[in-house]
Computed example of a mutant assay.
Amino acid sequence: MKHPKEMTGLEFLQAMVNGDIPRASISETIPMDLHAISEGTASFHVKADKRHLNPLGGVHGGFAATVLDSVTGCAIHSMLEPGVGYGTIDLNIKMCRPIPLDKELLAIGQVINMSKNLGISEGKIIDEDGKLYAHATATCMIIRP
């Protein structure tokens, strides 16, 4: 296996899906399982649990924000050459309905546009019937050596 710095973004994320490299530690705090990656698209299985509640007993908005930042970022990452990084500079989220507790949902990210310096992607959290829970657009700075 190549060293991670020698991998394209897609190769790196595929290695993560395959279990060849460890998943990001944030996936222990916010249960996210990157299960499918292709050029410009990422999919996660996600599930909020009792650790993610706000003081009123609902799932905190930070759960959806973290998931959407991750899935939109992975979609951008999948388009990058070896040694190139990225960072989110803008994340715009619309909460459409409350995230349910202890229900597996699907988060999907897809690239809208890539340029030399910026990547723009969108993400959504849906259930098995396609019902929309949250939507986001993200702009990422492409960091070249």
Rank of each mutant, 00 (worst) to 15 (best):
G62I: 07
G58N: 13
A42F: 03
R97N: 11
T72G: 03
G73N: 03
K94V: 13
D69C: 01
S78L: 07
C74P: 01
R51N: 14
S38F: 02
F63N: 04
T72I: 04
L106M: 10
H45P: 04
P82S: 08
K103H: 12
V71Q: 07
L53D: 08
L34R: 01
F63T: 04
I93P: 03
S38W: 00
G73A: 15
D102H: 15
L34A: 06
M95V: 08
E28Q: 14
D69L: 00
D33G: 03
G58M: 11
S38I: 01
T29Y: 11
A48F: 00
T72N: 01
K47N: 06
I30R: 02
A36D: 09
G73H: 03
H52M: 11
S70W: 02
M95R: 04
V46A: 00
C96S: 11
L91C: 09
A75Q: 01
S38Q: 06
R51E: 08
T41R: 11
V59T: 10
D102K: 14
G62R: 02
M32F: 06
F44C: 01
L101A: 07
A24K: 09
T29C: 14
R97P: 06
L105K: 03
C96I: 12
A65C: 11
G57P: 07
G40Y: 06
N54I: 11
H77R: 11
E39L: 14
G58I: 03
A36G: 04
A48S: 02
G40E: 07
S43E: 15
L53C: 11
I26S: 08
N54D: 15
I89H: 06
K103I: 15
H60R: 11
M79F: 10
T88I: 08
R97S: 15
S43W: 07
G73P: 02
A64R: 03
P82F: 02
S27F: 14
V46P: 00
L68Y: 05
H60N: 14
P100Q: 06
I37M: 09
I26F: 14
A48K: 00
V84I: 12
L53Y: 12
H52R: 07
M95E: 02
V84K: 00
K103A: 11
V46G: 00
P100S: 08
N54C: 13
I37R: 02
L101W: 06
H77Y: 09
A24R: 05
G58W: 04
L106H: 09
R51I: 10
H45R: 14
C96H: 10
K47Y: 00
T41Q: 11
G83E: 01
A36S: 13
E39T: 13
K94D: 15
L106V: 13
V67T: 02
E104W: 10
L105S: 07
A65W: 01
E39K: 15
N92R: 10
P31T: 05
K47C: 13
P98G: 08
L34H: 02
T29M: 13
K103T: 15
L56K: 07
P31D: 03
P55E: 09
T66K: 00
L105A: 09
R51D: 11
A75F: 01
E28M: 10
A36P: 00
N92F: 09
I30Q: 03
H35K: 12
H77V: 14
H60L: 13
D33P: 00
I37S: 04
A64T: 09
K94T: 14
G73Y: 01
H52L: 08
T29K: 12
R51T: 10
M32L: 08
I37N: 03
A42Q: 06
E28G: 08
G85P: 12
Y86N: 08
